Amino acid sequence: MNIGIPGLILIFILALIIFGPKKLPELGRAAGQTLKEFKKSTKELTNDVSDDEKETKRISNQKD
């Protein structure tokens, strides 16, 4: 999905109209924190799956 600069400007203007200039920094911080937590969770999940794969291969190799 490619929004582009005009689309981002339109979204910013709409957010400014709807929420006002005082609420936008709060919304930005909340969105940033949410994105940070999502990335952290995704990375942890990926690491867990990778660790499980390694453990499965290790056990498989011990049986052979």
Score class of each variant (00 low, 15 high):
Gly32Ser: 12
Leu35Met: 11
Ser50Arg: 14
Leu27Tyr: 06
Lys54Ile: 10
Ile11Gly: 01
Thr34Val: 05
Ala31Thr: 09
Arg58Ile: 04
Thr56Leu: 14
Ile3Lys: 04
Gly28Arg: 00
Asp48Phe: 04
Glu44Trp: 05
Leu8Arg: 07
Glu55Thr: 10
Leu27Ala: 05
Lys57Trp: 04
Lys43Met: 06
Asn2Pro: 01
Gly4Trp: 01
Gly20Gln: 00
Asp48Asn: 13
Lys36Leu: 14
Lys23Gln: 12
Val49Lys: 02
Thr56Asn: 06
Lys40Trp: 05
Val49His: 02
Gly28Trp: 00
Met1Arg: 02
Ile59Gly: 01
Arg58Lys: 12
Asp52Ile: 08
Glu55Arg: 13
Leu27Ile: 15
Asp52Arg: 14
Glu53Ser: 05
Ile59Asn: 09
Asn61Gln: 11
Lys36Ile: 12
Lys36Pro: 01
Ile3Leu: 14
Lys54Ser: 06
Glu37Arg: 13
Ile5His: 09
Leu27Glu: 01
Ile17Met: 07
Leu14Thr: 14
Gly28Cys: 03
Leu45Ala: 15
Leu45Glu: 07
Glu55Pro: 01
Arg58Val: 03
Thr34Gln: 12
Ile59Ala: 04
Lys57Gly: 00
Ala15Glu: 09
Leu16Asn: 03
Leu8Thr: 03
Ala30Asn: 04
Leu8Ala: 10
Asp48Ala: 13
Ile59Arg: 07
Asn47Ala: 14
Leu8Val: 11
Ile17Val: 15
Thr42Ile: 05
Arg58Cys: 00
Lys43Tyr: 03
Gly4His: 01
Leu10Lys: 15
Glu26Ala: 07
Lys63Tyr: 08
Glu55Val: 07
Lys22Ala: 13
Glu37Ile: 02
Asn47Phe: 06
Met1Tyr: 04
Ile59Val: 15
Ile3Tyr: 07
Lys22Arg: 13
Lys36Ala: 13
Lys63His: 05
Thr46Lys: 15
Ala30Gly: 04
Arg29Cys: 05
Asp52Asn: 11
Ile59Met: 13
Phe12Lys: 04
Gly20Arg: 00
Lys54Gly: 05
Ile11Asn: 05
Glu26Arg: 06
Pro6Met: 00
Lys57Leu: 15
Ile3Val: 14
Ser50Lys: 15
Leu10Asp: 12
Ile11Ala: 13
Lys22Asp: 11
Glu53Gly: 03
